[in-house]
Design a protein around this nucleic acid. Structure first.
Length: 492
RNA sequence: CGGGGUGUGGCGCAGCUGGUAGCGCACCUGGUUUGGGACCAGGGGGUCGCUGGUUCGAGCCCAGUCACCCCGACCA
């Protein structure tokens, strides 16, 4: 395998190469889609597991709805169809037939569907069509459902993990009796995402709400978490929407309240996707490759023996298996790589590329001395310790790595947020990457013109500014009065 | 959809002024190696993206077409 090219070229090319070389994913032959390889998928599975735990702890259940959505469903919510119409894959036929020359197949024109089916770009419509039958009384509420699924959005331009035509995600869809309860739910799930990002991905995020321009198609309010990538660009890492009664009205989902009156249901939806893998890669990776936070690593520790001959190999393998068992007993994910077809140096480089948090090397010398060499992926520090200390040291070392990754990223994020009050300064600072905190007059027109001039978008109105609604100022672009500071950045 | 680029063994590439395809990695066999991506010897594997044209002859020239990558536009 070729060495990972240092960051001497375009960051996005470096990213692409890293994803492929670190064995996470690759481009598929299918347009805009990717193949997630086992190593990459194991990280995703660990993410799923952690998220699922949090969903369940907050009272949610998993369910599954159809992949296909009848075209008519999609048109029932006006803003929603407007937002998604341009990127839908459509099923028009249900059968193929042999071509006249017998060499291939073609779509059978006789097998045309009466109503086309849309491959879900998101499931609000099919789910709300179903909820209509589930909800009669206030006693049926709330419905707190999540589904893990794949969705398809025919994006013009795709990138591994960040924007693929097909992607894996979870989408929560909840139904509530009151507006307040639904808003609370949307905010709760935003917190769940933020906690997950920080606790498991070691990725600090900024919580906020989207402006009207950036709002989800069909939502009343879109909450989001925004993360900062190493090249200074922002990435939306997760969203939670308060949908008001928009979908309930579109799909006629009503319940009878305690007072006997009928009312439309209040809704939320929220989701995170395999895009989080992209966020993880771009938050922690370096020129040696991927860096997996210990809490998301299936293999947290890899043992690499250094030996001459079969006798030494067996001897070291046995010792390593003993030590590995001690670690496994403490819940640590361990791999012992006694493969003799690869040299130690090759393995060192390989596991660094893959981002395994800790590497332990034992050679004949160590065997004699009862020592081993332990190397951290995050800092690349190596130390020699006694073998009988290992089971004691590893868990705390893993915690330390997890914390260090978070702290590094957090420091970067904190220093990247600059307050800017003049347009000239804005134009200079925005090119340097990071977030700009500036006053905005609240109009879509200003937002649009700032984007045209600088390519920067309003990533969010930070929740703390949004909630306190204090300290009004002057818009950085127009000079008109502004309610609060918002965060601008160049974004993925 | 616009601009740029690339299509040649599994991967990465070379192939000049047209003459019947080569290198590195990987793979297979044997041996020596093993504390930071080992070495030697031998071996297998390619209708050069596709279609058509020019030519005695096309990986190379011409036209068309398809796919992918990068940059835009687009994008909860």
């Amino acid at each position: 395998m070729a060495k990972l090219t240092p960051r001497d070229k375009d960051y996005s090319q470096w990213y692409n190469e890293l994803v492929v070389q670190a064995d996470l994913a690759e481009h598929s032959d299918v347009r805009g889609c990717m193949v997630i390889k086992p190593h990459g998928y194991s990280i995703w599975e660990n993410m799923k597991e952690a998220l699922d735990k949090k969903f369940k702890a907050t009272g949610h259940q998993n369910a599954y709805f159809p992949l296909f959505i009848p075209k008519s469903y999609l048109s029932k919510e006006a803003a929603h169809v407007e937002g998604f119409a341009k990127e839908c894959a459509v099923v028009t036929h249900y059968r193929l037939r042999s071509t006249a020359d017998g060499k291939g197949v073609e779509v059978d024109p006789d097998a045309k569907l009466e109503e086309e089916l849309i491959v879900r770009p998101t499931s609000e419509t099919i789910i709300w069509n179903t909820y209509r039958n589930w909800v009669k009384s206030y006693r049926d509420l709330p419905i707190l459902v999540n589904q893990w699924a794949n969705v398809v959005r025919w994006e013009m331009r795709t990138r591994l993990f960040l924007r693929t035509a097909e992607f894996l995600w979870q989408e929560g869809h909840t139904a509530h009796a009151t507006k307040a309860e639904a808003i609370t739910e949307a905010e709760l799930m935003l917190d769940v995402y933020a906690d997950f990002a920080e606790e498991f991905m070691a990725m600090p995020v900024i919580k906020g709400v989207k402006t009207e321009t950036e709002r989800f198609a069909g939502a009343v309010e879109t909450y989001c978490i925004e993360a900062l990538m190493q090249d200074g660009k922002a990435l939306q890492a997760g969203t939670s929407h308060f949908l008001g009664q928009n979908f309930a009205k579109a799909f006629d989902v009503k319940f009878t309240g305690k007072d006997g009156k009928q009312e439309h249901v209040w809704a939320t939806s929220w989701g995170v996707s395999t895009r989080l893998m992209g966020a993880l890669i771009m938050t922690h990776s370096d020129d040696l490759g991927m860096v997996i936070p210990p809490k998301l690593a299936t293999i947290q520790v890899v043992f690499v023996p250094i030996f001459k001959g079969e006798e030494q190999r067996l001897m070291l393998e046995e010792r390593m298996n003993e030590l590995a068992a001690q670690l496994r007993a403490k819940g640590v994910g361990v791999k012992v790589d006694a493969d003799d077809s690869k040299k130690p140096g090759w393995k060192f480089a390989e596991y660094e590329l893959k981002g395994i948090p800790l590497r332990i090397a034992i050679g004949p010398r160590d065997y004699e001395n009862g020592t081993l060499e332990i190397a951290r992926r995050d800092t690349q520090e190596k130390q020699t310790i006694n073998q009988d200390e290992l089971a004691e040291i590893v868990p705390s070392l893993l915690e330390e790595i997890q914390a260090n990754l978070y702290n590094k990223a957090k420091a970067k994020l904190d220093t990247s947020i600059v307050e800017v009050d003049s347009w000239d300064e804005f134009k200079v600072k925005i090119k340097e990457g990071g977030f700009i905190s500036a006053y905005w007059d609240g109009t879509a027109e200003t937002e649009k013109r700032i984007k045209e001039e600088t390519k920067a978008t309003i990533r969010c109105i930070p929740l703390e500014n949004f909630e306190k609604k204090s300290e009004p100022g002057k818009c950085v672009f127009t000079g008109d009065s502004a309610k609060e500071r918002v965060l601008f950045a160049l974004a993925y």
